[in-house]
Amino acid sequence: MKPPNFLYARPDTLEDALRLLSEHGTGAKLLAGGQSLVPMLNLRMAEPKLLIDMNRVAELSGIERENGKLRIGALTRHRALETSREAAQAEPMIARAAREIGHLAIRNRGTIGGSIAHADPSAEWPLLAVALDARVELRSTARTRTVAAREFFTGPFTTAAGADEILTAVEFPCAPQQSGFGFQELCRRPGDFAIVAAAGRVRMRDGRCIGATLAIGGADATPRHIAEIDRIVAGSRGEDAVVREAAAAAARVLDPSGDIHASAEYRRKMAAVLVTRALREAFASVAANS
């Protein structure tokens, strides 16, 4: 289990990285934390001609808060997000989600940009980005653009990013006042990819929900934001009947596929269970905070 032969370049600047990428086209592969790519190289499931290692591109990592947004550089490691005070203050669900990713040594290397670009439908960052309506920043030699996470994921392991684009940052909205979150995962062993996961946030005023957002991972081709749930929950006090209705909506809307970890049927059922749990957690956490 040894990687195939490839060329390797280690640019120091984003500009150089972009140039290499545009010169080598689809034969090139970007290397971020390597926690998904290197296993695929070792298994020879990926055979790039050129590996562009972005780990020395300083401008790609860092966490910044401005204008009610939290901007996270693509090369920021999972572990940095798990332990960042800045991130936790802006959106506590970030640390919560980061903690669930793999294991310590994986979190020490893996990056948020790599995870989002990789687009595993069960992964935490894509789920969170969709749930919170984050925006993904993409750069090529020609231009910079941002895409809503809800449009970025186009299928399992496929995204709207072009072959010449580097994902440079993710921008999360900061958590609003008087709101609570729920983050729930179902996995057989801690550190495994989730079978199904749900993440959501509810905003409250005077005991009533004035805005909700919820997404589910692992139960469809991409993490799915279910607008219908937002509508069901908005205006409610999180009553059991409302939560049940939301769960039923999830089971109805999602189109999971089965694999060896779980059948489509099981994933559909679990989506409903996790929606229930995430919404209960979210409502309870607002109550606890206020």
Partner: peptide
């Protein structure tokens, strides 16, 4: 792979 064949880990 060991992502699919799952021996128990310390928490299990």
């Amino acid at each position: 792979t060991l992502m699919d064949y799952m021996p128990p880990t310390a928490p299990d």
